[in-house]
Computed example of a mutant assay.
Amino acid sequence: MKSELLWDAMEHIDEARMEAALEQMEPKPAGRKRKRNKLKKGIAAIAAAALVIMVGTPLLAAESPAFYQALYSVSPSAAQFFIPVRKACVDNGIRMEVESAGLEGDTARIYVSLQDLEGNRIDETTDLFDSYAIRRSFDSVGTCSRVSYDKETGKATFLIEITAMDGKDIKGGKITFSVREFISGKTAMEDIPIELEPADLARRETTDVLTDPVTTGGGYSWEAQQDFGVSIEDEAAMEELGDKLPKTVLLPGESLYSPMKNLDISAAGYMDGMLHIQLRMKEKIKLDPHGFVYLMNEKGERLEPYCTVYFAEHTESNDLRVDYGEIMFKIPKEKLEEYKLYGSFYTAGRNVKGDWRVTFSL
């Protein structure tokens, strides 16, 4: 039955969709017209046959993620044609449902909910953890954020906002929203005093260092931006600023302080006119442990980090990867006697994986 539906779908693909796919699949020869009518159906038939052979059963294209991804890279509109319209789906005991959708000028707003049908893996801290994708056949930018949690129903609701790139009104079309994992059960410890003296940390030996670590990003204070003559609005300059981050970080060692599981201070010392404090984050790609520290004196005046360098120890398995954030404070060593160390730390309690995908028309 599914194979018959697939062939039927092939027969109803309109000329514009096939034209777009062909234009992207192969270059157009100069000075000559191609015969497309038979070729269009031929390519579609070959694609369908390849799908059946590839997966071993006559599934629709939508049921083969690899096929769908390949087709979407060739022609978004054609890929959306193959996806059956579904307003809800269930996987791993979690139901994802489109609650409502509406258009207002160049913006579409869609509310999608997640509900655990088997337990309590969804709560008020549920985070899609940047694992979502918003597929659409028109040029646009999209965002997704949690807006509410209903304790009685156990539903966490997310708002998807899609804005057309050209500023014109969105006339409709299909949207595919997918999620591959989420985290929940988050714990936060905010603005807590850390039982380490900044002045003592500055007196630690800093001979054990890493030069040119494999960085995964960086952060810069307003002072750092001013020192290098750039502003956050200048994206090109900010990218160049990343090249100016310190190239030497402390060698990770034994834990000096651990506020919560999978998160600890793994090194500290004074180097190049700055106090370095290194955070070690285990299972970051699974539970997102992270945090930041700052200095504060008796007057309540805070000293924020000058910059932060993020790097990671890469292993054969991502599950064993360890991430680090080296936080640096630009302050004379003798001034550290006036300050205490504080921090805020966060982590999730669970990670739930699945394959949730809903497709609907605006």
Rank of each mutant, 00 (worst) to 15 (best):
A16S: 10
K168L: 10
K284I: 04
K261N: 10
Q278R: 02
T57L: 06
F360R: 03
T157K: 13
Y306W: 11
E298R: 13
T187P: 00
D91L: 06
T107K: 13
I162P: 01
G218K: 07
Y220E: 08
D264W: 02
M189E: 14
K174R: 15
E118G: 13
A348V: 03
A237L: 04
Y310K: 10
A236I: 10
A9R: 13
A188M: 12
K40D: 08
P246G: 05
R350H: 07
P27Y: 05
G229L: 07
M18Q: 07
I277Q: 01
L245I: 05
T163R: 14
D355G: 02
S137F: 00
S137R: 01
G173P: 03
A164V: 01
S140I: 04
N262I: 01
D150W: 05
I331T: 13
R302S: 12
R135L: 14
N318Q: 13
D319G: 12
M18K: 05
V322S: 06
V209P: 00
E190I: 08
K330V: 03
S148K: 08
M260T: 00
C144P: 02
M271Q: 12
P246H: 07
S100C: 08
I53H: 09
R121H: 09
P193N: 03
L117Y: 05
K330A: 11
V309Y: 07
A9S: 14
Y220M: 15
L250T: 01
T176R: 12
K151N: 09
L287T: 08
P29I: 01
L22W: 10
K35I: 11
V358R: 01
L295E: 05
A9N: 12
K171Q: 13
L295V: 05
S73Y: 09
G291P: 05
I183Y: 02
E301D: 13
E19A: 10
D243R: 11
F129C: 11
A48S: 10
R350Q: 15
G102I: 01
K171H: 07
G291C: 06
T211F: 09
T153C: 04
A202D: 03
G185T: 04
G93L: 07
E313N: 14
E223R: 14
A188R: 12
G269M: 02
V55Y: 06
R109A: 10
T157G: 02
L263N: 01
P259S: 02
E104C: 12
V249P: 05
I265W: 00
L71T: 13
E313K: 12
K284N: 14
G105L: 06
K244M: 12
M165F: 09
R36A: 05
T211S: 11
E235Q: 14
K35H: 14
P305S: 09
T176G: 08
E190T: 11
F138Y: 10
I175L: 12
I13R: 03
I110H: 13
L263D: 03
R357V: 12
Y346K: 08
M54G: 04
R135A: 14
P246N: 10
D130K: 14
A20M: 10
R357T: 13
V322T: 15
L341Y: 04
F158G: 04
P58Q: 05
S77R: 09
E197I: 11
Q225F: 11
R36D: 12
F177T: 06
Q226L: 15
K33C: 02
